[in-house]
Design a protein around this nucleic acid. Sequence first.
DNA 1: GCGTCATCTTGAATGTTCTTCAAGTCTGGC
DNA 2: GCCAGACTTGAAGAACATTCAAGATGACGC
Lengths: 311, 311
Amino acid sequence: MTRISLDLVRQFVLAAQTGNLSRAAERAHLTVSALSHQMRQIEQQLSRKLFDRGPRGVRLTAEGQRLLEAVAPHLEGLERALSHYSCRREEALTISTISGVMSGWLMPRLPGLVAAHPELELNLQSSSALVDFEREPVDVALRYGRGPWPGVESERLFEEWIAPVAAPALLERMRGADPNQLGAWPLLGDPSKRWLDWFAYAGGTPPARYVAQFDTTDALQRAALEGMGVALARMVMARPLIEAGLLRVLGERYLPIPEAYFLVYPQRSREHAGMRVFRAWVHAEAADYRASMAHMPTHSAAPAAVPEACD
Amino acid sequence: MTRISLDLVRQFVLAAQTGNLSRAAERAHLTVSALSHQMRQIEQQLSRKLFDRGPRGVRLTAEGQRLLEAVAPHLEGLERALSHYSCRREEALTISTISGVMSGWLMPRLPGLVAAHPELELNLQSSSALVDFEREPVDVALRYGRGPWPGVESERLFEEWIAPVAAPALLERMRGADPNQLGAWPLLGDPSKRWLDWFAYAGGTPPARYVAQFDTTDALQRAALEGMGVALARMVMARPLIEAGLLRVLGERYLPIPEAYFLVYPQRSREHAGMRVFRAWVHAEAADYRASMAHMPTHSAAPAAVPEACD
DNA sequence: GCGTCATCTTGAATGTTCTTCAAGTCTGGC
DNA sequence: GCCAGACTTGAAGAACATTCAAGATGACGC
């Protein structure tokens, strides 16, 4: 027995409840001819005559009535479930970024946006992988990398700097050590492998080994906060911690890296109600952030060997 | 928002419950590639990532899990409803014919078939319209007409005769009238308009008007039984009543007409389990019936003007 | 009985979607 | 590092869906 197409069943219910193929076809955005073919097809699949056709529309046969009663409640439940599921709140703007950027840059600034625009509804998501805008209900992402990326809009927001940071407790323990001779300090492995770049920039000898290796920036940062060692931190994430006194920068230098932060979104997001507001706000905040980072003592550094892109 | 295809939802549930696209594709009788495309499509339609793909199969994301839970019960209900509905009992042979033939010819003989073949399961349907074998779950029909009909097998069973019949009560009331002078009797209109043929065959003058007109043979027969008038009856239907004494033939003559009875069935019915048995039996019964009708006094008559075909 | 109208049907042509094929990617286990 | 299993991807071909145009049907009004 042939598998009955559920889409055909759906059309049958529509026709049955409308009682008129012409009107049902309109509702389905088809010609009456297409619907007529469909009804014939389902009758063939079921080997049953479901409608009596007449010049005043169609009437269900007894069997058609039975089928309608059997399937309509389930179909309704199914449609309702799908409707709930796929009904993204069009008014909520869905923003995605990695958790470090979320907590270190976006969240501290968001109260300003919410205060200025109470009508905005935001949906915030942390993710460690690049957003697939085709498959995921994300409207916009703050993405770290070298950009631009194909198929999406990529608007540069601000650069990134790295510097060695450590917890006050560690500094206390290493009281007599020279903060410019990092080779003698307990260093935490860098997920992005930038210690060599740092030593090339600042001079000195890299250590033969690190205290531990980490696969995410979050884990690295937590280890640094615990005083496990010196981390080569990204400023966008570390800066609030530094300003809070939870971490200290060793020395006075910051190394700019080729990666930057971008506002990334697919074409479809242009039409989103909150997109214009959010985008303008992010660019303004990024400009402020760039200005506040402008007093950093910097030199041009050689590009890092391995590019990394994260949302 | 695009309408979600229910057939895609069904495939999603299959893949989700199988937890492996390759095996699910086998179950769906597709290549894994087709299923992969489908899963991608539904993810796009819903703008959601439903699966995490891995080398050991697929795992539902949280959203995929939510969707599964939301739709699975309804889908199951729908599939069950459809399954019940479309599940013809393959072992039951569905036979259709008009009610007069059903009661006058088939039913009186069926006990013989059932006794000889207790394993047979029959589904009997009366219908006044020609069976549409494409749309209706009928395996075989006894059809009246001139045959053959396109798209189906048409096997001739036996001829048909007509004769004027009346109830004993009417005969009693018309005790002094000549049964060969029907023009003087109260005649019931014939649905097939054959009174003119009869008078051309038997002589005499048709009446200016009939007692009443009827749109079906059943109604005509009932009126005759009530003694309303003389009906021009078809023997296949009237004969049991005549043999029961409920109706009498006026005179000694029977007029053969061009229409006959056929066994009609679509190609697909050849494979039906009970078809061979039923078909052989019907042909044997038809042969017996033809033999029993062979002693009827008959002449060749002009063909009737309007052909009629009924199952 | 005839004409009109609304509705549905039908077959063929055209457009769209689905499936397969072939090549590729990814990951875990050895 | 290699291999196998599982899934992905784009293009080609197959299958299906829809439209178009002509036709059929039945109810209604004249």
